[in-house]
Design a protein around this nucleic acid. Structure first.
Lengths: 343, 343
DNA sequence: CGGTATCATGTTACCGGTAACAGATCGAGT
DNA sequence: ACTCGATCTGTTACCGGTAACATGATACCG
């Protein structure tokens, strides 16, 4: 049996009665749009405070058919880059009175689908999806929703709506070129199973392509489990390879944490980095700069992705920009040379 | 001028018309509560699919005066432990059809206040706050909201409602005892400015107390900026100390990332860890196990905090448990010995 | 065969705000 | 004194679901 605590929720009507005015006046007074006499406004405000009135956004959103928020999905809430993007996005939205409503997919497309369905039923005004890979069902749900959709952290060949980010494949190119220029030829890519990490798979593809163009031998691949993979998996992978890792000139890791794990394992194995083996990461996480030797990586401008996305959302909702279909905003990336690839 | 795209939102009425039944029947058919004829249900379902109908949770919540979600605040979405807690909490809630609505405070009490105000106006059914320190305004807002409130990751002396977590002060005790037992006497605590990191300040207090009880000299403190502090700050702090760090037997760090930064700086400075200097962290982050030498830390059972909180919320909303005022659930913690304190 | 339980569906009203429109009051200008 | 506009406040209806109740159809009983 439910605890049937009688809860006399305080509404505008109550405040109106307390203040001796109509509910409409309360609404206006609280909105502070200048259409209410200054004295009345004061009376209403103090009445509201006295009763402990809390504005009901749900009712407002319902009436106005405007929820005032933007749904955002992230694969993980344990990732500095996604956190940065989210912060920048939130900041940009707040200036317009919009809120970001955050959902986490745990790198699973089915969870994304469930989440999107759920988020859409709350009538967001726009939808920001991290990543460009989705289930068919997700795509059709989203396409039918008639709200602006923005995919970030990816440059899908066929975006649902707009896309803000960078090509994960292209961003790998400077890494491979750098390795080639410093004389590394036998490369091993360390990443998650392709199915589970679309962005990682793109990076691998880009690496393979760049290797070909640089005249390097085919790049080898080691899949070390489903996304998210991190330090532990990178460490274990290299530990398992053991001395066999010496067959390679460089480990190209799908992310900095994986690279750090690999680096740490090398130190355990007595493999000298960068002398015997070079290592590269991806994402310019804090650790890449702090560890010894520092890790060569790629800065992908997470904050810019968030800020640009925010701007785009605001523009689209303003109607300043019409449809976003096909808009693609590239935020760039930059190689950050660390000590793990020094000569 | 706003893009006034005419959007004929599909409602239950439309579906009803399409299916040739009343809106009420549509409602029942979609809810699948068994009060509708099987054939009718099929007709309604296909009509809904044909029109691309999407259920409107906002309207449902409004009518039922039940939002179906639990508001959760986190200081950061770049922290494995908070992520773990959030995942466990979400999982527990989902079994009851509740959703977690996530807000981020960036370790700022004023942001928390803004956020709480916002979240409350969306009428959550319960509120989960990470941390036990709040502005006065936040406390009174929350207290007046008449919904269950649970503070996690802390054991405040005077909780608003219930508390689930551990005493950050107590959790520091085994660390200090371990250092004392292994002969370390001169300790330096590395943490954020106390004001900005309540949990960190508690850890420092606990460390100081434990040191006293173990008969160690007063523990020194180095504040290295406002929360969140991480590897970079830990690294810079030790780098700045330079040779002066040799005056201590052990660095007691407020978190693993700070500890790792300190460790890395020691390696740069040529200070041998653990021979010349011991280092401890907090939180059992992945890096503590992967780096070399591995870092002695404290596992605080982030998953248990999430799971217990979820259970508590569900119980409270069921009415199975009445008021949570004063409930305190301790989730425990455990010292994890690493190589940074070996002899 | 009337009475009643059972099942399936429809009708009405309402949740808490606010847009749109309709007064009411007042001072200024003619 | 009358008109007019500006300023302020009130009234009505509505957003999209669904609880509560009413109704209609069918089955089953003594």
């Amino acid at each position: 049996m439910s605890a049937k605590r009688a809860k006399p929720r305080v509404t505008m009507r109550d405040v109106a009665q307390e203040a001796g005015v109509s509910p409409m006046t309360v609404s206006r007074a609280l909105k502070d749009d200048g259409f209410v006499n200054e004295r009345t406004r004061g009376i209403v405000r103090s009445a509201a405070a006295r009763l402990g009135y809390v504005y009901d956004t749900t009712a407002q959103a319902f009436r106005a058919q405007r929820s005032g928020y933007v749904a955002v999905t992230l694969p993980s809430i344990n990732n500095a880059n996604f956190a940065t993007t989210h912060r920048a996005l939130t900041r940009a939205l707040q200036e317009t009175g919009l809120e970001a409503l955050l959902g986490v997919t745990n790198y699973r497309l089915e969870e994304e689908e469930r989440l999107v369905r759920n988020l859409l039923s709350r009538r967001p005004e726009a939808l920001v999806l991290t990543g460009g890979a989705h289930t068919e069902e997700t795509r059709s749900l989203v396409a039918g929703s008639r709200i602006p959709v923005i995919e970030i952290w990816d440059m899908p060949a066929d975006p649902i709506g707009a896309a803000v980010g960078f090509s994960n494949a292209d961003a790998m190119r400077p890494v491979i070129e750098h390795l080639a220029h410093t004389g590394r030829r036998k490369l091993l890519f360390l990443g998650a199973a392709g199915r589970s990490d679309q962005r990682g798979a793109e990076r691998r593809r880009g690496a393979a392509e760049a290797a070909r163009e640089c005249g390097l031998p085919e790049i080898a691949t080691l899949e070390i489990g489903d996304a998210p993979i991190s330090m532990t998996e990178g460490f274990a992978a290299v530990q398992n390879l053991g001395a066999a890792v010496r067959a390679y000139d460089a480990l190209v890791c799908v992310s900095d944490p994986v690279a750090f794990g690999a680096l740490s394992a090398c130190q355990t194995l007595g493999v000298a980095v960068p002398k015997d083996l070079a290592i590269t990461g991806f994402g310019a996480f804090e650790i890449s700069a702090v560890c010894t030797p520092s890790i060569t990586t790629v800065d992908v401008r997470a904050d810019r992705i968030g800020a640009e996305t925010g701007r785009l959302v605001v523009d689209l909702l303003d109607g300043a920009r019409m449809s976003a279909k096909g808009d693609r905003i590239a935020c760039g990336y930059a190689l950050v040379q660390g000590a793990t690839t020094a000569l």
